[in-house]
């Protein structure tokens, strides 16, 4: 008794599941996210630089935001002196979003791509989406 048929079917089912990432993507080319910096405020900047380097921000912004939050709220320290000695007022809504007023084109671009759904916007307003 071999039950070959059943084994083959089982194997095919396994393969159908296991190779899903491949066949669901093949031939598709997904454009990588291009967060837009095209806002009036940024345009007006002479040096287009965030509070920290671009690379740092790409990796660490979520944690920096948490630090900012705790510093501002819990220690009443609302001044951020970055690694180059430049001062920034700590505020998601009033510092970050002033420049990046285009949440959809900036934040959501990558968040959507990486399927992360931060709850910042449950409370914090976005200019463009403000009511």
């Amino acid at each position: 008794m071999y039950d070959g048929g059943k084994i083959i079917i089982g194997l095919l089912i396994f393969l159908a599941f296991a190779t899903f990432p491949f066949y669901s993507n093949i031939g598709k080319s997904v454009a990588k996210p291009e967060p837009s910096l095209d806002t009036p405020v940024i345009k007006a900047l002479e040096k287009k630089e965030c509070v920290e380097s671009k690379d740092f921000m790409r990796r660490n912004h979520m944690q920096l935001l948490i630090e900012w939050r705790d510093s501002a709220l819990r220690d009443a320290k609302r001044d951020y002196v970055n690694s180059k000695g430049k001062h920034f007022r700590i505020s998601l809504q009033n510092t970050c979003m002033k420049c990046h007023s285009n949440k959809k084109k900036f934040c959501d671009e990558c968040h959507g791509y990486a399927a992360v759904d931060p709850y910042c916007w449950d409370c914090h307003f976005v200019k463009e989406g403000g009511r």
């Binding site: 660490n60 630090e67 009443a76 320290k77 970055n82 690694s83 007022r89």
Partner: peptide
């Protein structure tokens, strides 16, 4: 708890 990630400082706002 909170870890510092950048070589940066936090201070009360000067104008506060």
């Amino acid at each position: 708890v909170r870890s510092r990630i950048a070589s940066s400082e936090y201070a009360p706002a000067a104008e506060g």
